[in-house]
Amino acid sequence: MTLPVTIEAETCCMPRVADALTADEAAEVARVFKALGDPTRVRLLSLIAASDGGEACICDLIEPVGLSQGTVSHHMKLLADAGLVTREQRGRWAYFRLVQPALDAAAGALRAG
């Protein structure tokens, strides 16, 4: 079944975003969205956000997502490479914090000015 399409002449070519992203900005936003494109990584960010003090040890992230330490470390590396978390080594354990400005920028990247 095909739905009817209505195009209003006066709104057809109106730009939806006041200031479009540059090619470099779009590439950066796409990298962040790619990192967020996996449900496990979104869950890991949520676990960190809900942790006391806004940080979590890798050892506290393994059991809730039900994956091996190596797999969780891989996911966390992708989130760190995308600039969404910071990583601090303390002894043999890595601790992660959200980078709130990066999350805010991702949320606002496609919003009209």
Rank of each mutant, 00 (worst) to 15 (best):
T40M: 04
A27Y: 03
P101Q: 04
V42F: 10
H74D: 05
A106F: 05
L79I: 01
P101M: 03
L45G: 03
T22P: 02
G54M: 10
D60W: 05
C57V: 14
P101T: 07
G113Q: 11
A80Y: 00
V99A: 01
R97S: 11
A80N: 02
E63I: 07
A9Q: 15
P64S: 14
R92S: 06
A35D: 01
S68F: 10
R31C: 08
S68Q: 14
T71F: 01
D52I: 08
I7Q: 08
A27E: 07
P15M: 05
R92L: 08
L98K: 06
L21F: 05
A106L: 07
I48R: 10
D104W: 02
D60Q: 15
V29H: 05
P15I: 06
R111W: 08
V85P: 00
L47D: 13
L3S: 13
D19V: 15
G37K: 12
D52A: 15
R87N: 02
Q69E: 09
G70P: 00
A18I: 11
S68W: 13
D52P: 07
G83T: 00
L21Y: 06
T40A: 12
E10S: 12
E63T: 11
T71A: 13
E28W: 02
A35P: 01
W93R: 13
R90F: 10
L44K: 10
T40V: 12
V29C: 08
L47H: 12
A26I: 07
A106H: 04
R31V: 06
G108T: 11
T11K: 09
L110K: 03
Q89G: 04
R97A: 09
L36P: 05
R31Y: 03
C59M: 15
H75R: 04
G91A: 11
R87H: 00
A105R: 13
I7H: 06
L45E: 05
A106M: 06
M14T: 14
G83D: 02
L21K: 09
A35C: 02
A49K: 13
M1L: 05
R87K: 02
A112S: 14
P64K: 13
I62S: 03
